[in-house]
């Protein structure tokens, strides 16, 4: 996150926004919580440490991870309209867990996570392989293919779950929701944060990929190896998010698009900004979901569906970015 801290008033404003949202997230919810009660009431402290803090961290980690995964995927596919969740990554991760659950019910959580990651990797690899074969003159074919591809995988998932009577179980992964996040049940999301760090580390080389295969080879980049690294980042983030909090749509699409409009496609600059934007968007939508029908909740997936779709339409049809 060096670039953000080094940077501009805009970076500071972004961090301040994230902190404000985090504070709101810590003190908004069905159970009443205030700073005064926190110091006096041990039950309030338990609520804070076991639920509110993990929930806030989960939203930040998942949002940042998905935004960076989206940015990486858009770089690999050389297309701005793809995101990991809807283009098969999320559905295949859920398929992977379901398969392990059926074949080997005693599997531990890390094993399920590994299966989810492997399934997401296979699905994302296939997606990018097909995306590269689609004509670059028709950029909308890629997201259309992604939607169809994700829908097919999603149908397979639903069918399998229905036949095995596990539909309710699967619902948990399909609908992103932070309300079930408790201490001890979100920590794997730190791995998604680590994958984000990997993207930042490899930012220069991943950006070379965006110049296309020929330019990458000409510059001496191991194109295939870099492609694999990018796919691993995308898959791990997708799989971990799906298995811990469920599918969260649009973050991977809206946050990177917003960011690259302003700071450009160089991942060295765009990665920290995308992480920040994704965290703010996800956390903001989660807080909003808790406030809309207080004390009841709207799941973050639903809120993001509405907010994200509106934001995306604005990105598509709104004012063009100024010529820098």
């Amino acid at each position: 996150m060096r670039a953000v801290s080094r940077a501009s008033p805009a970076g500071l404003a972004g961090v301040a926004l994230l902190l404000a949202l985090a504070a709101a997230s810590l003190f908004v919810g069905a159970g009443h919580l205030s700073l005064a009660r926190l110091t006096q009431d041990p039950a309030a402290w338990t609520l804070f440490a076991a639920s509110r803090l993990p929930r806030t961290l989960a939203a930040v980690l998942a949002g940042a991870g998905l935004a960076v995964a989206g940015l990486v995927m858009q770089t690999l596919a050389r297309n701005r309209f793809v995101e990991p969740m809807t283009a098969g990554g999320g559905q295949s991760a859920a398929l992977g867990v379901l398969a392990v659950t059926l074949l080997w019910p005693a599997a531990s959580l890390p094993m399920k996570m590994a299966a989810a990651s492997a399934a997401a990797l296979a699905a994302s690899s296939l997606f990018v392989a097909v995306a590269q074969r689609l004509p670059p003159t028709q950029p909308l074919l890629v997201p259309l293919f992604g939607l169809a591809y994700g829908a097919v995988l999603g149908s397979a998932l639903t069918f399998l779950a229905w036949r095995t009577d596990l539909l309710q179980y699967v619902e948990v992964w399909i609908n992103g929701d932070f309300s079930g996040v408790l201490r001890g049940r979100y920590e794997l999301l730190w791995l998604a944060a680590a994958a984000t760090g990997l993207a930042w580390w490899a930012a220069d080389r991943l950006t070379v990929l965006s110049l296309g295969r020929d330019a990458s080879v000409g510059l001496g980049l191991d194109y295939a190896a870099m492609m694999r690294l990018g796919l691993v980042i995308v898959s791990v983030v997708s799989a971990i998010t799906v298995t811990t909090v469920g599918m969260i749509p649009f973050v991977g699409l809206v946050a990177p698009n917003l960011v690259t409009r302003l700071v450009g496609d160089h991942l060295r600059r765009a990665t920290p900004w995308a992480a920040l934007a994704g965290a703010c968007l996800t956390l903001g939508c989660d807080v909003l979901g808790r406030l809309l029908r207080h004390p009841y909740e709207a799941p973050v997936g639903t809120v993001l569906g509405v907010v994200g779709a509106a934001a995306f339409l604005w990105l598509l049809f709104g004012p063009r970015p100024a010529r820098a």
Partner: peptide, 20 residues
């Protein structure tokens, strides 16, 4: 026609020539 139409700045693009 390598089809580079991205939001890389010109100096960043030329900078990638130094990548090797």
């Amino acid at each position: 026609d390598p089809g580079v139409a991205s939001r890389l700045r010109v100096r960043e693009l030329v900078g990638f020539g130094r990548f090797p």
